[in-house]
Amino acid sequence: MSPIEEENLRRPIWTALVTRHAHLAEGSAGARRYPADTSPFVATKDNGKESLAALERLCRPGERMVFLQRDPVTLPEGVAVAMEADGVQMVGEGSFSRIEDPRIVPLGPDDAEAMLALAELTKPGPFSLKAQSLGSFWGVKENGRLIAMAGERLKLPGMTELSGLCTRPEAQGRGLGRSLLAFVAGEIVARGERVFLHAYASNENAIRLYEACGFRLRTHMHVVMADKA
């Protein structure tokens, strides 16, 4: 991995919001965020006074914000930590090929409510009705009902994050998660990009699955949820 890629991954939310997701960004040179109805992700350029002042202006009272970065998260006065957790960042190093799987179909705007319902049931991470504005999603349906999905989230130069991987409880144990993981990774790599993902450090089962599918642990990450009074 190049030094530029390493640096871009230190603060992946910031990198996405100043590059491939710049068209979605709200904020200024020191702090940026996604629209609240799209994602709660927020990031600063660094921990300097100007960036923290920009973050304080960007925060809205009573609104939950989520930070994800390698560096410890520094918050301005008036913004309080609601939850902290340890995360991991993993990068794909396997030979991910494009997969033909008739069970896996593209998801579109008409699937947004079913996608949100599945995410709320399984808790794969921050999700919204507008998640598809961040990247493409694919899923498996059974009798017309969405039972598993995965897609793309943060987009960095030459890299795309695989995210939203989840399966309904009654459909687990059938290998759908592994199939979707391999499928989405294959789609990303086929575009000439590198694939990466994030998980909570405590989610050992997921991490073992990712490792078995060709991902390696790159670094630990700080996950912080915060609110402005």
Rank of each mutant, 00 (worst) to 15 (best):
T167I: 06
R194N: 00
E77G: 10
L197D: 01
R20L: 14
D101T: 11
L17I: 03
R32W: 04
F127P: 06
R64C: 01
C213K: 12
H220L: 04
I99V: 10
G78M: 03
A114P: 04
L121W: 00
A53G: 03
L154D: 02
L181P: 04
I99C: 08
E142P: 10
R20A: 10
G192R: 09
V223L: 15
E93Y: 12
T19H: 12
V81Q: 02
K141R: 15
M225E: 15
R20E: 14
D86R: 08
T74R: 05
D227W: 04
P106H: 12
P61T: 03
A43N: 01
G48P: 00
P106A: 12
G144N: 10
T38Y: 09
K49Y: 04
V105R: 10
S39V: 01
D37E: 15
P109I: 08
E77A: 12
P124H: 02
G78Y: 02
A80N: 11
R218Q: 06
G214T: 13
L75P: 00
P12A: 13
A206M: 01
S39F: 01
N143E: 15
N143T: 11
K49E: 13
G144M: 09
E50W: 05
G214A: 11
A112W: 00
G92I: 05
N47H: 09
E193F: 11
G173Q: 12
D71V: 01
E84S: 09
E113C: 07
L217K: 04
Y210D: 08
T38D: 10
A185Q: 05
A131Q: 14
W14M: 07
H222L: 08
H198D: 08
T160L: 12
A114G: 09
Q172N: 07
L180A: 11
N143F: 07
M83Q: 09
K228E: 01
R64L: 06
F127R: 03
V224F: 03
F137N: 11
H23C: 03
R70G: 01
A54T: 08
R218L: 08
T44Y: 01
D101H: 04
G30S: 05
E84I: 08
S202D: 00
G158S: 14
L55Q: 05
L55M: 10
S202V: 00
M90K: 07
R11T: 03
A199H: 06
Q132R: 14
V91E: 14
V184R: 08
E77I: 02
P76T: 09
S97T: 11
I104K: 10
D110Q: 12
E84F: 04
L134N: 12
R191A: 09
P72N: 08
E100C: 03
E161D: 13
F183Y: 15
A190C: 09
